[in-house]
Design a protein around this nucleic acid. Structure first.
Length: 583
DNA sequence: GCCGTTTTCGGCCCGACTGTTTTCAGTCG
């Protein structure tokens, strides 16, 4: 339709989407699975890249990204120049793009979608519904009564269901199932696996693995668990169930001797396993979920632990959070894996709310809850005046709260309570409280809570204003993303990180599971640039400290060690960081 | 289409489950 090229550079997500569409079309057309995988890998690479992929391409350096070669670089440049890609245009002419939706229905793949289109002209889900109702779908080869009934059920449920759930909502359900599994007499070991174990911020389902010599009895018991709504698949080693909560669970079972093999396999990621098995082949081994086989001699090793699997291949055990094929295999080979942050390394929490703003507990209740969890210090960071809906603090109330916090601190043993604020970075770039008020506080966190739609230069100007303000110590939830609900504002992560390093400003890793912001990708970049971070709960009630483990998970995914996180330091060391000697 | 501690060409992880198949294709992770 001849849309003229615009000056605005496409986002990484947009470019990744284009490659994914190409990959989908290629699979519909029956192209080589390796060619399809290449486009998907490059798309993933674009999504992970913290800087602008378009800028990298324009600079002629796109092939520096993993999985990008000459062909994909050429196509990206073609897209940037003309706003279209000839290959994609041709494929769109052969199949309407809506056919790809069909392909994404669970249980429907490229072959089935293609057959439905070729035999019946089904182009979208409405057509499919009609073909089911009229019985026409039976004319499509490969369909029988059972598969049609199943598909009909999927279409009905599909509309309402989000494709990924928040880690923090899924984790407690998985823990409950695991506890029940471990109580069964026929189970000798059980663990969660998959993206849940890798601590991804969102997950599609729960993967569980168990060791047992009696899978049949185990499956019978599992099917009777209260949270299990119904069993959808059941074979000799694998069961798939839907929970009352609508989440899906995959449960796989092996003999205890192979538990390590299965756990390693099921934890993934797919990319990690592909790379691991390719490395294994080069070293003369074949790896599966049952065993490690020495190719030359045919000798079989079964592994009760994951450590054995990696050791057989000459590698150090790799923490699950790192298993994304982002350099962890090389680090495990060279013995340079990071000494990752652990929950117990955290000595304090720098971002906690109370009933002075939108928290649901008093200063004292929060302080006692923090002490109970073994924290040595916490800093109250209630909202500032502009956030009216959150009962934000005026300068007078900040001073009054400071008096209350100092009084509380003087009579509490075993924990130090600090005065802070989560001050708004307003839409015009000004800071919501005057400098003389901020200067009296121990820790000032500055956050964006408005003007999310502003263009990147304006967002960056606001962040710069906060970074350059000598009273600001921390940038709160730096991207503003709300997982599954709201994308980040137009953040230039590289500029933010450069500014944080230059000014000695700390970047928050907000542990609330709908934020997890900084993301792992950005944390890893910040680590490399020499920035410091803080893992903070953003707790609004005493249970909110439980969120810290999600922040730690995201930090571990970003390869962070205790030395990169300021609230692993004792109070004295923290105060040194806040002194900001670099100014 | 990408990539290299056997390779710039010939490989590319490996297996489970379902439904429709009569020995396997398709999908999924």
């Amino acid at each position: 339709m001849g849309t003229p090229p615009t000056n605005a550079q496409p986002t990484n997500a947009a470019l990744a989407g284009v490659l994914e569409t190409i990959a989908d079309y290629l699979s519909l057309e029956g192209a080589s699975v390796y060619r399809i995988a290449a486009y998907q890998r490059a798309a993933e690479s674009f999504r992970e890249h913290p800087g602008s992929v378009a800028a990298l391409a324009t600079a002629g350096e796109l092939q520096r990204l993993p999985g990008v070669g000459e062909a994909i670089e050429t196509k990206v440049l073609e897209y940037l120049r003309t706003d279209s890609i000839e290959l994609l245009t041709q494929m769109r002419a052969r199949y309407p793009e809506s056919v790809l939706e069909l392909m994404h229905l669970p249980g429907v793949g490229p072959k089935t979608a293609r057959r439905m289109f070729d035999t019946l002209g089904v182009v979208d889900i409405d057509d499919l519904r009609l073909a089911i109702d009229t019985g026409d779908l039976l004319k499509v080869p490969g369909f029988g009564a059972k598969s049609i009934e199943r598909l009909a059920g999927i279409i009905v449920r599909q509309a309402a269901r989000p494709d990924r759930s928040l880690l923090g909502t899924v984790d407690p359900q998985a823990e409950d199932l695991l506890a029940r599994l471990r109580e069964l007499p026929e189970v000798t070991a059980a663990e969660s696996a998959g993206s849940l174990r890798r601590r991804r911020s969102t997950v599609r389902d729960i993967d569980l693995v168990a060791a047992s010599i009696d899978a049949e009895a185990l499956f019978d018991s599992f099917a009777a668990f209260g949270p299990v709504a119904r069993v959808e698949q059941r074979g000799p080693t694998k069961l798939v169930a839907r929970l009352q909560s609508d989440l899906m669970v995959d449960l796989r079972v092996v003999a205890p001797a192979s538990f390590g093999d299965l756990l390693q396999h099921s934890t993934g990621s797919a990319a990690h396993n592909v790379a691991l098995r390719a490395l294994a082949q080069r070293r003369g081994f074949k790896v599966s979920e049952y065993q490690v086989e020495h190719s030359a001699s045919g000798a079989i090793h079964t592994c009760t632990s994951e450590e054995e699997v990696y050791a057989l291949l000459g590698l150090a055990w790799i923490p699950p959070e790192l298993r994304e094929d982002r350099g962890e295999l090389q680090a495990a080979d060279e013995g340079t894996l990071p000494n990752l942050l652990r929950l117990r390394d955290l000595r304090g929490d720098l971002h906690v709310h109370s009933d002075w703003s939108d928290g649901r507990a008093t200063l004292e209740e929060m302080a006692l809850a923090a002490r109970e969890r073994g924290l040595e210090y916490l800093c109250f960071s209630d909202h500032s005046q502009s956030l009216g809906v959150a009962n934000g603090l005026t300068p007078d109330r900040v001073r009054a709260q400071t008096v209350a916090i100092r009084e509380l601190d003087s009579r509490l043993d075993g924990i130090t309570v600090l005065c802070g604020i989560e001050v708004d970075i307003l839409a015009d770039g000004s800071i919501d409280l005057p400098d003389d008020v901020l200067a009296e506080l121990d820790v000032v966190t500055a956050s964006i809570h408005s003007g999310f739609g502003q263009p990147q230069p304006q967002i960056q100007a606001r962040l710069d204003a906060a970074l350059e303000n000598p009273n600001v110590h921390v940038i709160g939830h730096p991207s503003g993303r709300l997982l599954t609900r709201r994308p980040p504002y137009a953040l230039d992560a590289e500029a933010l990180i450069e500014g944080a390093v230059r000014t000695g400003t700390i970047l928050e890793i907000n542990a609330a599971f709908h934020r997890l912001d900084l993301s792992a990708t950005h944390s890893r970049l910040a680590r490399a640039a020499g920035a410091l971070m803080a893992v903070s709960s953003d707790a609004h009630d005493p249970t909110g400290f439980d969120l810290l483990r999600y922040g730690v998970g995201e930090a571990r995914r970003g390869w962070l060690e205790p030395c990169h996180v300021v609230n692993t330091r004792p109070l004295l060391g923290l105060r040194e960081c806040l002194g900001r000697s670099s100014r």
